[in-house]
Design a protein around this nucleic acid. Sequence first.
DNA 1: TCATTATTTCCAGAACTTTCGAAATGTTAG
DNA 2: CTAACATTTCGAAAGTTCTGGAAATAATGA
Lengths: 119, 119
Amino acid sequence: MKTTDAVTALAALAQETRLALFRLLVETGPAGLAAGEIGAQLGIPANTLSFHLKTLTQAGLLAARQEGRFIYYAAHYAAMDELIAFLTRNCCNGASVENCLPKTAVSSTITRRRARLPA
Amino acid sequence: MKTTDAVTALAALAQETRLALFRLLVETGPAGLAAGEIGAQLGIPANTLSFHLKTLTQAGLLAARQEGRFIYYAAHYAAMDELIAFLTRNCCNGASVENCLPKTAVSSTITRRRARLPA
DNA sequence: TCATTATTTCCAGAACTTTCGAAATGTTAG
DNA sequence: CTAACATTTCGAAAGTTCTGGAAATAATGA
């Protein structure tokens, strides 16, 4: 992942509506939701929603697929994965990684592997 | 972590200079670097650097400590951890978390637990 | 105290982002 | 074909962010 891709992805997530949107789709899973359903769940006007969906899709964080009249959007998990890897790469210079960086991508769902952090 | 905190943290990271800054400090470890050293390594004018350090610090991603005339900045690992947890929370509705979400926070440094992703 | 170095604050202009109304496009059913 | 629905594009106004010059603050050593 290049720096500019990471900046684009982070910028896409750095907006309240889009973050809510993305997290909804992360929870929903690979099947995704139709644009209209998303708008209904989050109470966003269609044109505004479309703008935000486009932003997230162009950033590589969502995948869109058409099904009849509906367009389903789903989280692109691999992209989220890469972004997290990018942020945490070479943590603490590779030294003592075991107690430096979080086993965290999943720390909220898998609690048994909770992290020990410096600072 | 509240949504607005996550948005603030993501916005802080969504800028090329600040992302480079943050990643440098993530690599450096808990000892951190003096502002001037950071500026020298990345080639950023002092006032601009100060602006970006403030943004990251206010977002909770950096911790500052004074030592003589120098101010050392270090990554706040716990905050990064929380942010990642926030993004990935309830992935795929809790179902089959094991093959859904990445064990990725550390995927670049700890390769043995590589993820199996949907999509 | 004074000079020096380290860092931050203030300011203003340029560039970018978000929002929403209105219009356009695309898909299906009758 | 036409109506109805789903979604996107366009355009303009309001707000926010980034940058760098100049000045301010802060700590140290001579």
